[in-house]
């Protein structure tokens, strides 16, 4: 099967896709974009979170054939040419990254949250990120990072 979709602003066409493959497999193994991680392949960990037509999804739960013509944004598409996305920078500054395997998914989920809710309460942050498991940090510094990013984005007038 031939698949055409837009990934991080670039139109990509890929041949010989097996339709039962997940978007995650397509991104990682066929497009060379391993930023979305494969940690459970059943939507239980959020490590493969990407934006699909503006909606936060687990790439492992989307069939390759379903993204025909779709627009996908992955963690690889967040940073600018010189600067990190403010959410990425906040994760770094807050010490929210340890092994980092959950980080790309969490960053995409945080971007999604802050786009919808510029000033989330702690409860709102927790509910929004509950689908993203982290095994290293105990989440404290992840919450710090989200709060920091929210403040910086507000300051920068990005909302």
């Amino acid at each position: 099967m031939r698949l055409t979709c837009t990934v991080n602003g670039k139109v990509e066409t890929i041949d010989d896709v097996w339709p039962g493959e997940s978007l995650l497999y397509v991104l990682r193994e066929r497009m060379g974009l391993p930023g979305a991680k494969n940690a459970c392949e059943q939507g239980e960990c959020g490590s493969c979170s990407v934006h699909l037509d503006g909606i936060l999804v687990c790439a492992c739960l989307v069939a390759a054939g379903q993204v025909e013509g779709a627009e996908i944004k992955t963690v690889e598409g967040l940073a600018g040419a010189t600067d990190l996305h403010p959410v990425q920078q906040a994760y770094l500054d807050a010490g929210a990254v340890q092994c980092g395997f959950c980080t790309p998914g969490l960053i995409v989920a945080t971007v999604d949250l802050l786009e919808k809710n510029a000033d989330p309460s702690d409860s709102e942050i927790r509910e929004a990120l509950a689908g993203n498991l982290c095994r290293c940090t105990g989440y404290s510094k992840i919450l710090d990072a989200v709060r920091l990013a929210a403040v910086r984005l507000e300051g920068a007038g990005k909302h």
Binding site: G43, I55, L56, V57, C58, L61, E127, A130, G131, N132
Partner: peptide, 8 residues
């Protein structure tokens, strides 16, 4: 599930 699941 999670927000990601509820979105789909």
């Amino acid at each position: 599930g999670s927000l990601q699941i509820r979105n789909k």
